[in-house]
Computed example of a mutant assay.
Amino acid sequence: MITTDFDPGTPCWLDLGAPDVGAAAAFYGAVLGWDYEPMGGGEDDGEPEGGIFRKDGRTVAGLGRLTEAGARSAWMLYYTVTDAAATTVAVERAGGTVRVPPRDLGEWGRMAQYSDPLGGQFAVWQPGSTTGVELVDAPGSLNWTELYTSDAAASKEFYGTVLGWSFSDMPLPGGGGEGTYTLITPAGLPEERMQGGLMQVSKDDLALTGGRPYWHPVFAVEDCDAAVAAVTANGGTVQMGPEDAEGVGRLAVCLDPSNADFVVLAPGGQN
């Protein structure tokens, strides 16, 4: 369960790097009912650099123009830390790499971005006046985080060392006893505060990143089938589903028009 308590090691923010900010804003507005608020100045072509997504007036995510050469459009997940500099040292000692060194963002806080030893990208946030998003675990907001990795044991070792997470394994829901899904709980929190999972897949299943692991967000929706219909009607595609996962709900793995991946989930067996 994700909350806005934002204890260390919990998800607190997410943003999307998109090649076309306006198109991305329109797509997620249609699929998740988000409103988009541009912020800051524009580029030479007049397109805003980015802004904020809101649901019912509350912040749910950020959006920015994709500027990194050769990068794919993707969601970046941020986790709360008490000291971004110390986390950076821990990342390097554990075999990860620093993509963006700790950077102050005014009074709001401090951020850094990394890659784990297998290439999975993630970020951290050391809060200042801003602790994170304002709405989670509700329709149209983040309610789970998920890592697809080529080596579950190595991923658990790294993230356990860097972010203090604990892990518990379970059979894949509906998997007929085949495959394992690892549940993630932040350090010092009870199991009901599980905030995500990781799953080992083959490199063939990591085609989006050329074989590298990747994180993606899971967004709660009231009706999974209606959300999927909105995805395809607005230029997105569906990689898997909709399908029912016992004890979880009805879900689908989707790509937006720029191939950024995300999951929509109607929890508890809703449509």
Rank of each mutant, 00 (worst) to 15 (best):
94 A>V: 05
122 F>H: 05
96 G>A: 04
79 Y>R: 00
80 T>Y: 05
74 A>P: 03
110 R>I: 05
116 D>W: 07
123 A>M: 09
83 D>E: 09
89 V>N: 15
101 P>C: 08
117 P>Q: 15
109 G>P: 11
84 A>S: 14
117 P>R: 14
112 A>E: 10
75 W>T: 07
110 R>F: 02
84 A>K: 14
114 Y>A: 03
85 A>W: 01
109 G>H: 02
123 A>H: 04
84 A>H: 14
85 A>S: 13
93 R>H: 11
85 A>G: 13
123 A>I: 02
102 P>R: 08
98 V>S: 12
76 M>Y: 07
108 W>F: 09
96 G>R: 01
92 E>F: 01
78 Y>W: 08
101 P>N: 12
73 S>Y: 07
116 D>T: 06
82 T>G: 15
85 A>C: 03
104 D>N: 13
119 G>K: 15
82 T>V: 10
110 R>Y: 04
76 M>W: 00
113 Q>G: 03
118 L>V: 01
77 L>V: 07
80 T>I: 02
79 Y>L: 08
97 T>L: 03
92 E>W: 01
108 W>N: 07
75 W>P: 03
92 E>D: 08
112 A>P: 09
99 R>W: 00
86 A>G: 12
117 P>L: 11
81 V>H: 07
94 A>I: 09
118 L>D: 15
91 V>G: 06
77 L>F: 08
109 G>W: 00
118 L>H: 13
88 T>F: 07
109 G>C: 05
78 Y>M: 04
115 S>G: 07
91 V>P: 08
92 E>I: 06
73 S>L: 09
110 R>A: 05
114 Y>I: 02
121 Q>C: 06
114 Y>P: 14
80 T>S: 09
102 P>L: 05
108 W>I: 08
119 G>S: 12
84 A>M: 08
111 M>N: 06
101 P>H: 05
117 P>C: 12
83 D>N: 14
73 S>F: 06
117 P>H: 13
95 G>L: 02
99 R>S: 10
97 T>K: 11
123 A>Q: 02
98 V>Y: 05
106 G>C: 10
108 W>K: 03
87 T>R: 09
86 A>Q: 14
83 D>M: 06
96 G>F: 04
77 L>D: 00
107 E>M: 00
73 S>G: 12
109 G>I: 01
74 A>T: 12
89 V>M: 14
93 R>Y: 01
107 E>H: 04
96 G>L: 04
99 R>A: 10
76 M>Q: 13
109 G>Y: 02
120 G>M: 04
111 M>D: 06
116 D>S: 12
115 S>T: 09
118 L>W: 11
87 T>N: 07
110 R>M: 13
94 A>E: 11
91 V>L: 10
102 P>Q: 09
106 G>K: 07
75 W>K: 10
90 A>Q: 11
112 A>H: 12
95 G>H: 12
91 V>K: 03
83 D>S: 06
